[in-house]
C-alpha cells in the first residue's frame, strides 16, 4: 500500500497556467515531492516575492494540497486580470 500523498503541480508559461495532480510512483513525483510547498502562507509569500522583485513566475511549482495550488494559480491569474482591468479602466476613461 502506498500512503504517499498526491502532489499538485501548477505550470505557468506566459499567460498560460495549468494544473496537474501527480500520483505517487508517476513520472515527476519525486521532483515534485522534493520542491513541494506545504503551507499556503509559503505559497503566498513566494508569489509576493516574485511580484516584488519584478520576476516572471514562469516555471512549475508543486504543492501539497489542491487548495494551496489553486490559491497560487489564482493569485497569478488574478494579477494578470488586474492589469487588464486597470488598462480597461484607463482606456474607457480616456477622453482624447
Amino acid at each position: 500500500m502506498n500512503d504517499q500523498p498526491v502532489m499538485f503541480n501548477v505550470a505557468i508559461e506566459g499567460l498560460q497556467t495549468s494544473m496537474r495532480s501527480i500520483k505517487p510512483g508517476k513520472r515527476g513525483y519525486d521532483k515534485a515531492r522534493k520542491n513541494v510547498i506545504y503551507r499556503e502562507r509559503d505559497a503566498i509569500a513566494l508569489f509576493n516575492q516574485h511580484v516584488n522583485e519584478g520576476q516572471t513566475l514562469d516555471g512549475v511549482y508543486s504543492f501539497q494540497s489542491l487548495d494551496i495550488a489553486k490559491t497560487f494559480a489564482f493569485l497569478h491569474l488574478k494579477s494578470i486580470e488586474h492589469l487588464i482591468a486597470s488598462s480597461l479602466d484607463r482606456v474607457q476613461a480616456y477622453k482624447g
Partner: peptide, 14 residues
C-alpha cells in the same frame, strides 16, 4: 484563520 488569510489575499484589491 486559514480561511481568513486566504480571503484577505484573494480579495484585497486596489
Amino acid at each position: 484563520s486559514q480561511a481568513k488569510d486566504r480571503m484577505l489575499v484573494h480579495t484585497d484589491i486596489e
